[in-house]
């Protein structure tokens, strides 16, 4: 084997390799293309082109898969962003609602400066299509007592506290059959008693009984609390008259009233813990 390395052929080859290395390096360093480099490139140009297209095809496939990965990652990031934004929107909506509530609350407070209010949140509702009873998150430790009136954030009567626990209270709404509110029709001044009726509960309505036969009450009239009965203060909006009909005896009339407060949608209410009662 060693004979080959001592042979003239190998020594000549080695010398050629060294000379080529020096020449090629020197020419490349000086920025000139040698005859050899030119010749090789000219001869191999067609082949280089063919192999180059293979390389480009591989690059295309690679980029395709790379872009799929990138798109997946982007999709995931966008999903996370959407979730974050949804959370922000939810928070913003909650804050907006709260803001509106406190705005209304402030309005009512300014309107009835003699009332003492306590805001509460509805935590449970009666199962069913209509709401006549619901639970609140405030109780006796917050100063809640039985028979305290409750109004909605819009200022309409909701009902009263029918039961109070330490940190909870149950409210009966004006459409509950146990409810009985002294009211008057704002336009005519006619007084009556608003009470719940089982047949009207489904529609979320209640009725004013014992209106006189020649009563002038018409559809759209606003009904207010009269303050009689010692539960509700005077002058709080109850609802609007939906229809007026004669009783069976045809001598008296009754009016069907739609409460101003939306009992199915109410989330926050205000409990009036103190006001001047009319005896």
């Amino acid at each position: 084997m060693m004979r080959f390395f001592k042979s003239r052929f190998f020594i000549v080859t080695l010398c050629i390799a060294m000379v080529l290395t020096v020449i090629l390096s020197a020419l490349a360093a000086s920025g000139h293309a040698s005859v050899i480099t030119n010749g090789v490139n000219v001869m191999l140009a067609p082949f280089s082109e063919g192999f180059g297209s293979v390389g480009l095809a591989i690059k295309g496939y690679k980029q395709y898969f790379d872009s799929v990965d990138a798109l997946r990652a982007e999709n995931e990031a966008l999903k996370n962003e959407v979730n974050d934004l949804k959370g922000l929107i939810y928070d913003a909506e909650a804050m907006k609602k709260e803001n509106e509530f406190y705005k209304n609350f402030l309005g009512i407070k300014e309107e009835h400066s003699d009332y003492i209010f306590l805001d509460a949140t509805v935590i449970n509702r009666e199962a069913g299509n209509y709401v006549s009873v619901f639970s609140l998150n405030k109780g006796t430790r917050d100063g809640i007592e039985k028979n305290m009136p409750i109004i909605s954030e819009g200022g309409g009567i909701v009902g009263y506290i029918s039961e109070a626990g330490v940190n909870w209270a149950k409210a009966s709404t004006v459409i509950d059959t146990s409810s009985s509110v002294g009211v008057y029709v704002e336009r005519t001044g006619e007084a009556g008693v608003l009470s719940g009726e089982f047949s009207l509960k489904k529609e979320g309505l209640c009725r004013i009984n014992y209106l006189s036969g020649d009563s002038d009450v018409t559809v759209g009239d606003r009904v207010m609390t009269s303050g009689l009965g010692s539960i509700y203060p005077e002058g709080i909006l109850v609802g609007t008259v939906e229809r007026v009909e004669f009783d069976d005896n045809l001598r008296t009339k009754y009016a069907i009233v739609r409460p101003f407060a939306d009992l199915t949608e109410t989330e926050r209410v205000m409990i009036i813990t103190g006001f001047e009662k009319i005896d």
Binding site: L20, S25, T37, V40
Partner: peptide
């Protein structure tokens, strides 16, 4: 090997060429 070094230097590299050796 020497020719391959020259070819590779010609088509694929710049600067100092050590491929033939």
């Amino acid at each position: 090997s020497v020719c391959a070094g020259v070819v590779l230097h010609s088509i694929g590299t710049r600067g100092v060429s050590y491929y033939p050796l």
